[in-house]
């Protein structure tokens, strides 16, 4: 019960950061699976069934643009931040830094 509750809270905590995580990796064009690997390499785990719909949503919102690369053996859809996405990302990073500083302040000395 306690474990379920903790997992639920952690999942909620992570969910809020996913957009920022994904946007951070898309200054250069990447396709979905390479993005999963890149995020996992940096310690952020994201399921494909979360990432792919999220990429589509961010594209619909104008934060990402996409291109199909059909030159290789497998056709792949590459996503990249748009200029609008860059602006939003910069703003989100600014907010994240503020939040992070506030959280450190709040949680400082509360390790136990």
């Amino acid at each position: 019960m306690e474990k379920d509750l903790l997992e639920g809270l952690l999942s909620e905590l992570r969910r809020g950061t996913l957009v920022l995580c994904v946007l951070s990796q898309l200054r250069e064009a990447r396709y979905g699976y390479s993005l999963i690997q890149s995020l996992e390499g940096k310690g952020v785990s994201i399921d494909a069934n979360t990432l792919y719909p999220l990429l589509r949503r961010l594209e619909q919102q104008g934060l990402l643009c996409s291109e199909w690369n059909t030159e290789e053996a497998k056709p792949r859809k590459y996503y990249k931040r748009t200029v609008y996405g860059d602006n939003i990302f910069a703003e989100l990073v600014k907010q994240w830094n503020c939040l992070s500083a506030s959280m450190s302040e709040l949680l400082g000395g509360m390790e136990n």
Binding site: Y31, G32, Y33, A48, Y52, W68, K74, P75, R76, K77
Partner: peptide
């Protein structure tokens, strides 16, 4: 589009 994306995703997962 989703069909093509999922197909390459599954293939990538199997390979990687």
């Amino acid at each position: 589009e989703i069909r093509l994306e999922l197909a390459s995703l599954i293939e990538d997962m199997c390979d990687a």
